[in-house]
Design a binder for these strands. Structure first.
Lengths: 133, 133
DNA sequence: TTAAAACTGGACTAATATAGTCGTATTTAA
DNA sequence: TTAAATACGACTATATTAGTCCAGTTTTAA
């Protein structure tokens, strides 16, 4: 119920590795091999991180990835939202789905759940990816 | 990635409802009807809550459920553990699976993830079910 | 100029977890 | 003894997550 997906796990491992390499360019293959992470999956994740401007990439031979900014500027909250898409702790707080909720009007726990959500978000916002290194 | 399951949602709704009814005995059917929650599913959840000593039940005609203790004595953390079983925010923190993790020894993010987990647990421990009423 | 090493991207499949259903038994009050 | 309730296990369906496959494109270096 409160569990990081593999994507987040792999992201953290990759980001840490790339960060430690300083300005060296790192390939998906290298990380995949080092940590036994399925190559295709990791590649996808790194591509996503690039698209989200957390990494920059070079294509072609000798290509690879490096950080676009230091990891203490990226919160866990931001990483999760960018990798998995923003979402609420219950379906109905994921705004799109409001209309689909049978209970909504009579829902008794909406407000406190909302507060809970904010507290969780806060915790994740104050955790920087650099804290995981 | 941080989302309450329907089971937790339904639990909260049911517990709130039962709590508001004071000492009256409440049936699964009543709650199910009121909130459009699938009867069989809700029944299972209430049975589980009973087995975990959060509710007490009477069988037979005029049977139903009531609280075994006030909701400010039950933390969200406890409710989640009892409904879904205890689990870590990543697989490897769910102790049984340690042996299956390919990365484990070389895992760079284990320790900070562990700390993160403790902080999350803490947040959930300090939230009482009564806060959701 | 071409081959190899890398990223890019989409569609697909597999595995797992969550949500929901069904059938049957048991209990109990009226 | 019947109807209304909980109890329980097995099953199915759906959604999410994890992982695979394949066919590109880009770039460097030989």
């Amino acid at each position: 119920m409160v569990r990081f997906s593999k994507k987040i796990e792999y992201s953290l491992i990759a980001l840490r590795y790339i960060s430690n390499a300083k300005d060296e360019i790192i390939t998906a293959k290298e990380i995949s091999g080092k940590y036994n992470i399925p190559y295709e999956l990791l590649a996808k994740i790194l591509q996503k991180l690039k698209k989200e401007n957390i990494l920059v990439s070079n294509q072609g031979v000798n290509g690879g990835y490096k950080l676009s900014k230091p990891l203490n500027e990226i919160s866990l909250s931001e990483l999760i939202d960018k990798i998995e898409g923003k979402s609420g702790i219950v379906e109905c707080l994921h705004t799109d789905n409001l209309t689909e909720c049978f209970i909504y009007d009579s829902c008794s726990i909406k407000d406190p759940i909302n507060k809970m959500q904010l507290e969780l978000e806060n915790l994740l916002k104050n955790k920087m990816v650099s804290d995981f290194i």
